[in-house]
Amino acid sequence: MKIVVAIKQVPDRDAAIRMAPGAKEIDERELQWAMNEPDAYALEEALQLKEKHGGEVIVASAGPERVGTTIREALAKGADRAIHIVADDLGARDALGVARLLARAVAPESPDLVLTGLQSEDRGEGQTGVILAELLGLPHATLILHVDRTETGLRVKRELEEGWHQWIEMPIPAVLTMQSGGNKLRYATLMGIKRAKAKELRAVSAAELGVDATPAIVLEGMAAPQKQKSTQILRGSPREAAAELVEKLKTEARVL
């Protein structure tokens, strides 16, 4: 099977997110970056499918120069080659605009399967995979935890709300968005990191793809959230803060 995995580079989970002065975007200057975790699960599923059934795993990622490090990480984990869609204006494009870039870059590969994470940890829109399917004219399923290859296509396990699941049968080619937790993520090995350096990483500019960047929805502004409740922050040493908290839970909140 020829599998394309769409991955996104996002701020590391522990990174402090602050606004850039006078801008509508966050301050990227001192951020650490990482592979979007649901996309890491999509990559893991692709690598396991390749190990079981053979084929090729191609990663595709859109973003500026820095995205290269995350692409190299995917190659080090076992992807065979990569497409970097070089775009400095990802934040100004809406979900449709980004999916159009990916679709244009991925379509010539004619993959049997396109995998991506169910959502990104930065914008959290959860739309890219579904729009990709629409643009590529392929069937899709979302929130997938498990993928079986069948004679005619795929049998996938989808997560529903409140602990429910269902199996879905579908033909290939298809697009799946992966939920986290279905597999155990692998680490890149030293050997993998060494091999990744020799793998093909093709860069294509957003301009070359000829995609309309005009968004249908426009970001007006962004700000750190205001507190919904007035939180009492208890200070002092751990012992002092703990004692004060227990006192407040007993006498003020009356929940102990």
Binding site: P225, Q226, K227, Q228, K229, T231, Q232, I233, L234, P238, R239, A241, A242, A243, L245, V246, E247, K248, L249, K250, A253, L256
Partner: peptide, 26 residues
């Protein structure tokens, strides 16, 4: 912390054992 009524900003590996002791003591 936006939705919390009470908050302790600190290392949970220090705060949680202290809190367990405080709850037991109370």
């Amino acid at each position: 912390f936006e939705v919390a009524d009470y908050g302790i900003v600190g290392d949970l590996f220090e705060v949680v054992p202290a809190l367990t002791e405080a709850v037991k003591a109370a």
